[in-house]
Simulated assay, not measured.
Amino acid sequence: MVSEMTPTRRALAAVLGGRVDYVPPANPLAQTTAELMQVCNASWPKAHFDSKMMADLAAAPYEVCGIEAARPQFDISLEAEVLGCKLDWNKPDRPPVTGPAYTDPADVTWPDNLEETGRIPVVLGAINELRKRYEGMLPIIPVLTAPFTVAGHIAGVENLVRWTKTDPEKAHAFIEAATDFVIAYGRLQTAYGAHILFPADPSASGDLISAETYKEFVLPAHKRMAREISCPQILHICGDTSKLLPYIKQSGIDCFSFDAVPVWYCRQVMGNEMSILGSLDVIDLMPNGTPEQVYNRTRECILQGTDVVGTACDVSFGTSLENLRAYVRACKETPIPKPGDIDELVRQIGVGIGRNMKENVLGGMQE
């Protein structure tokens, strides 16, 4: 594709399976690093309560590094807080939920004036500010904590997971209530100008639940989000989701943001049924690697078939601007591979894995 696209058009095209001029660095994971916060004079916890500061910090990755996304709302506890949970503000950057708020799913309620409740108006105000500031040219991708995680917050994660085995009716009821709320909030974000939503469901990780549990309890909620919120969506689940992938691609959600799964494997399983976003390591690579290492890893992700390059989780506080810029530069400078090239690369990776297993696992045994 020859013509230059706007960041919003590029991100939407990539998420929805269309043509792009390059693979977009439209990272929807939080990028509230020390240097970016200093640049825009943002501070914790004020950035959670001030729409202007939230918008400034959400836009800083684009303004300073060229990352083509603005992600307002920096924590995944807001939804639980609105539903009655207490947060630990001693950890002001990502305040965790201190404990469940309900024992009976029938008691789960929220105010009718959701638009004016808790910190929701702050996020909606930031979305509105970003939309006006960039006149639609920069994709606004707010996080939306997804139903299984919200249900775990309000009922207790251990309780919820246990009930999937011992009291499935109760587990379903809590997830259904959480889904109703998440859809209502997602529709508000859409109405205020979000271009793409970023439902994050870390409690649905394959490290915590089985593929069968995902299929029975989580997939119906993800299908409802896809069906009932009129906005493109990128679903994020942390950890090893390899066994969940065949079901995730049935969700109807437009794009999957992954963590520990190899890019080539995710591409192979998803085929053309779902776009994929991933996956730069945030534990070692982004905070400790060199710009050259970040550049090369970004290039690998593109050559293995990702539609959008982003990080595996929220960017570490100490990640340098140089590494963030290297990631953007690699996206712009790496040609988009043809489908046949990706297929051949996946085949070569499979041959290499097989050879490695024979040498290291089977002791070099010959057939």
Rank of each mutant, 00 (worst) to 15 (best):
M1L: 09
M1F: 10
M1G: 12
V2C: 10
V2Q: 14
A13L: 07
A13D: 15
R19K: 12
P24T: 08
L29Y: 13
A34W: 14
L36F: 12
A47M: 12
H48Y: 08
M54S: 10
M54C: 12
A55E: 06
D56F: 07
C65Y: 11
G66P: 00
A70L: 06
R71Y: 13
W89P: 07
R94P: 05
V97P: 01
T98M: 11
P105W: 00
T109M: 07
P111Q: 09
L114H: 02
E115P: 00
P121A: 05
V122D: 04
A126R: 06
Y134N: 04
G136T: 08
G156R: 01
L160T: 04
R162P: 06
T166R: 15
D167S: 08
A171W: 04
H172P: 01
A184F: 01
T190N: 05
F198R: 03
A200I: 05
P202L: 00
P202G: 02
S210G: 05
A211M: 00
E216A: 07
F217G: 02
V218N: 00
P220D: 11
P220F: 04
R224Q: 09
I229G: 06
Q233I: 04
L235P: 06
H236V: 01
I237A: 01
G239D: 02
D240H: 10
L245F: 03
L245T: 04
L245M: 09
C255P: 03
C255S: 10
F258N: 02
A260T: 13
A260M: 11
V263R: 10
Y265G: 08
C266N: 11
M270T: 06
M274S: 01
G278C: 10
L280K: 08
D281L: 09
T290Q: 15
Y295N: 11
T298V: 06
R299T: 15
L303W: 12
V309F: 03
G318S: 14
E322N: 13
V328F: 01
R329T: 13
R329E: 15
T334L: 02
K338T: 06
K338E: 15
G340K: 05
V346P: 06
V346C: 10
G350S: 15
G350M: 11
I353E: 13
E359R: 15
V361T: 13
M365Y: 14
Q366F: 14
